[in-house]
């Protein structure tokens, strides 16, 4: 497995790709906070936020529908919010019987449900775009500039660096289990659910020991290269004038979207 097998970065030379990672991370977070602040049923503001998203998509040269295609991941969670359809007080729109209960959809409930879905859908797309136009190590470095404690960002950077190594390890373990799970045609191999859980647990324990010993080796290797608790980088991440202008412009636009939603 290649070291960046998990990265969602899409190589392009667009305007967004060249922006400082700090700007991208900051604007994404402000955009998501702004979405959460918009009141229910602020349709015009939702459209404004959506146009902001489309514009960002266009600037990234990934195509207008790029983030839309990948945004389906948040959909299953919508099930959790579906109860709000019936629980908000308001004018009943329609009602139906299911099993023994009578469900009544109210207008306020529908308004809130749709608003929650739109907020979530817009926010997840911006987060998808962020990792599509920013290399993950750059993003982590940007978080450090934005005052996330260095310990956390370094742990995350290590996680990212060794994730593909341990994933390879997991695939080896899974392949080994597969190759020892022969069965006669029509019969299932192995024991019951408990037995299978135990095997999975043993594999997790095995993976833990391998990772633990690997971390020891890594630490010794780092010590031998002069590691003293600090990590250095040659990637300076300097803010250019344009980066400040873009941040200012994005904040102004998001604020206008907020105003539209409130007035």
């Amino acid at each position: 497995m290649h070291f960046d097998a998990f990265d969602r970065y899409h190589e392009k030379a667009s305007f967004l790709h060249r922006l400082d990672p700090r700007v991208k991370a900051l604007v994404t977070v402000i955009y998501i906070v702004s979405n959460a602040l918009l009141p229910d049923g602020a349709w015009l503001a939702f459209v404004g936020a959506w146009i902001f998203l489309i514009a960002a998509n266009l600037l990234s040269q990934l195509g207008t529908g790029y983030t839309f295609k990948r945004s389906i991941i948040a959909l299953p969670f919508a099930l959790i919010a579906i109860t709000v359809l019936f629980s908000m007080p308001g004018k009943p729109l329609s009602s139906f019987f299911f099993l023994a209960w009578n469900f009544t959809i109210t207008d306020m409930g529908l308004l809130r449900f749709v608003s929650i879905l739109i907020r979530s859908w817009l926010s997840v797309q911006m987060a998808i775009l962020l990792v599509a136009v920013t290399r993950f190590p750059d993003l982590i470095h940007a978080l450090e500039h934005l005052r996330v404690p260095a310990i956390l960002t370094t742990i995350i950077a290590f996680l990212y660096r060794y994730l593909f190594v341990l994933t390879d390890e997991v695939f080896r373990l899974l392949r080994a289990r597969e190759s020892r799970s022969a069965a006669e045609a029509g019969n299932r191999s192995g024991g019951g659910v408990l037995w299978r859980a135990k095997v999975a647990g043993n594999m997790a324990g095995q993976l833990f020991l391998r990772s633990y010993e690997r971390s020891d080796r890594i630490y010794n290797a780092m010590l031998s290269r002069g590691y003293s608790g600090h990590l250095y980088t040659l990637n300076p991440h300097e803010m250019k004038p344009g980066d400040y202008y873009v941040t200012a412009f994005a904040i102004a636009v998001i604020f206008i979207v907020q105003l539209i939603g409130r007035l």
């Binding site: 742990i155 290590f158 996680l159 341990l166 994933t167 390890e169 993976l207 990772s211 690997r214 971390s215």
Partner: peptide, 16 residues
């Protein structure tokens, strides 16, 4: 840092 970083990768991988 190396210990917890690799352990974090372990938890991530163990979920697979």
């Amino acid at each position: 840092i190396p210990l917890m970083g690799v352990m974090a990768a372990f938890v991530f991988a163990a979920q697979m």
